Simulated scan of single mutants.
Amino acid sequence: MKTSIVIVDDHILIAKALSGILANFEQFEVLYECENGKELQERCQHPKNVPNVVLLDISMPIMDGFETAAWLKETYPEVLIMALSMQDDEHSLIKMIKSGAKGYLLKNVHPTVLADALNHLVKNGHYYPEWAASKVFSSICNEDKQSDKKDLFNNREKTFLRFTVTEMSYKEIANQMNCSTRTVEGYRDSLFEKLELKTRVGLAVYAIKNGFDS
């Protein structure tokens, strides 16, 4: 059975190009294209229009990718969301994961990378690019193993974890925690060691997965 896909992108040429590319892969079928999340909401009112995967642009008018992902997560949690972006910035990545995206892909990738990413998403339930530290995300997906490490954190490290999902710099986090930037970096390094992570993105995703963002 083919994996059904809906493309949500306000750039019509890009949406059509993606449809054309996916038509070359026998394992996928494009149900339809939408220009924004609002249109997707309207189309999904009919059960046959609910896809297996949504290729979701982040920057759109009326209802952007973040809002659309959050709506899909609440309304159709079984639908896998692959976020599409022109930029590899950490903020968008973290915010999209928090909103419900299970994958993140740059629009300038080769068609074979797109196919591989979608296959990985369908098979494993997640897909993240190289720059987002794939080892970080694959380890975080094992929530039971990671959750066991919560007891290793002291209260200050838990507080710091909550700040990792924000846009604050380490200096701004230090101001909020009434300590020096070097102390905050110490909390970061301690968590890196305890969680076997190497990037702030990894800490932020861990925080989101384990409820430290609330």
Rank of each mutant, 00 (worst) to 15 (best):
residue 101 A to Y: 06
residue 50 V to A: 02
residue 85 S to N: 11
residue 163 F to G: 01
residue 103 G to Q: 11
residue 10 D to Q: 11
residue 157 E to V: 13
residue 150 K to L: 06
residue 157 E to D: 09
residue 126 H to A: 05
residue 180 S to Q: 08
residue 2 K to F: 00
residue 13 L to S: 14
residue 35 E to F: 02
residue 12 I to H: 12
residue 10 D to G: 04
residue 165 V to G: 00
residue 209 K to V: 12
residue 114 L to W: 05
residue 5 I to P: 04
residue 14 I to A: 04
residue 65 G to I: 14
residue 161 L to Q: 14
residue 145 K to Q: 13
residue 191 L to R: 13
residue 26 E to C: 01
residue 125 G to R: 15
residue 34 C to A: 13
residue 18 L to E: 12
residue 2 K to E: 01
residue 57 D to S: 08
residue 6 V to G: 00
residue 160 F to Q: 14
residue 63 M to H: 07
residue 136 V to P: 04
residue 9 D to H: 06
residue 191 L to P: 01
residue 50 V to R: 13
residue 6 V to H: 02
residue 141 C to L: 10
residue 203 L to I: 12
residue 127 Y to S: 08
residue 136 V to K: 10
residue 58 I to P: 00
residue 195 L to D: 10
residue 81 I to E: 07
residue 105 L to W: 08
residue 99 S to Q: 13
residue 49 N to C: 02
residue 176 Q to V: 12
residue 138 S to P: 01
residue 10 D to F: 03
residue 44 C to R: 12
residue 46 H to N: 11
residue 63 M to S: 06
residue 207 A to T: 14
residue 119 N to P: 10
residue 71 W to Y: 09
residue 148 D to S: 11
residue 102 K to Y: 00
residue 101 A to N: 13
residue 179 C to D: 08
residue 181 T to V: 10
residue 193 E to A: 12
residue 120 H to L: 03
residue 207 A to M: 11
residue 205 V to P: 03
residue 151 D to R: 14
residue 69 A to D: 08
residue 195 L to V: 13
residue 170 Y to C: 03
residue 137 F to I: 15
residue 62 I to H: 02
residue 149 K to M: 05
residue 99 S to P: 09
residue 110 H to P: 01
residue 199 T to S: 07
residue 69 A to W: 06
